[in-house]
């Protein structure tokens, strides 16, 4: 089976200003995103992540190169029917309620009238937005906007879900719940493409990552392979005394191994935060 998304030698130039100065947002990018995995697209601000996603979805035209999505050579309406998209900093029609928006998106995505009610409720449930669903979107907090955005992206049960910074502006508890939604999608066999600056979370939820810098790909691979340093080892030891330590060091040295550092393990601020805080105050 073909990749969920494949990008070959993609280049995108934006023309800015009246003199038509060119800004190269993507520079000869090639990527294969396999099906059924969570794929993280990382990189500093302005490195071209969102632009790449827009080109893949046909919202912006490529200057050179080609893409294919779900086996189609461009984002045809058939391909888009099987794809869900959450844009960055999402902002939806504020005069609609959350439920109206998700319903509208479901209709546009081709959900049959008979399945509409159930699909909308499922998506709202998955995004934990049932309670606030009847409030106008204009009254939502950032976290709720991201969650309703997630709901509208998955309401038609797409094979491929593309999320551009779904955790931007969301508190750690909310981020963790978005992380769980992503894992739920993977459990259902979906492909998820994720842009995020929360590297800790990317590390937890992604199977593969790619890192971009100034429009170029600098690294791509399975998270396991990319992160593990197979030449180094970490032991966690309890109740260690100075004598035990000296003995261990001597034993290791006798085998030619060298201890380069001894530290105390730290918990992350995120873990601490989540231990102390129970949940978001959003509905």
């Amino acid at each position: 089976m073909s990749s969920a998304i494949s990008v070959r030698h993609l280049t995108k130039d934006f023309r800015i200003g009246l003199r038509g100065l060119k800004l190269r947002a993507i520079d000869d990018l090639s990527l294969e995103i396999p099906r059924g995995q969570v794929f993280g697209l990382l990189g500093p601000n302005g490195c071209g992540k969102s632009t790449t996603l827009k080109v893949i979805l046909g919202l912006v035209s490529a200057t050179a190169g080609e893409i294919s999505i779900l086996g189609e050579l461009s984002a045809t309406s058939a391909a888009r029917r099987r794809t869900g998209f959450l844009p960055e900093a999402p902002y939806f029609h504020k005069f609609l309620t959350g439920r109206e928006l998700v319903r509208y998106c479901a209709q546009l995505s081709g959900v049959a009238a008979a399945d509409l009610g159930a699909a909308v409720e499922d998506a709202l449930g998955l995004a934990a937005m049932n309670e606030a669903a009847d409030r106008p979107i204009g009254t939502y907090s950032k976290g709720m906007l991201q969650r309703i955005g997630f709901a509208q992206a998955v309401v038609h049960d797409p094979e491929l879900v593309i999320l551009d910074e779904p955790t931007a502006g969301v508190d750690p508890v909310g981020s963790a719940s978005i992380g769980r939604m992503i894992q739920a999608m993977r459990a259902k066999g979906k492909t998820v493409v994720l842009c995020s600056h929360l590297l800790g979370q990317v590390e937890q939820v992604c199977d593969r990552v790619a890192i971009m810098d100034r429009g170029k790909l600098v690294l791509e691979g399975a998270v396991e392979d990319v992160l593990s340093r197979r030449d180094r080892h970490v032991m966690t030891i309890e109740a260690m005394t100075p004598a035990a330590r000296a003995a261990a060091e001597a034993a290791l040295e006798a085998h030619g191994a060298k201890i380069t550092s001894v530290t105390h393990p730290r918990r992350s601020l995120e873990d601490l935060f989540r231990e102390l805080v129970t949940g978001s105050h959003d509905a």
Binding site: L59, A78, L108
Partner: peptide, 8 residues
């Protein structure tokens, strides 16, 4: 962006 990413 949201709407045009749909089959529309």
């Amino acid at each position: 962006l949201t709407l045009l990413a749909k089959p529309l």
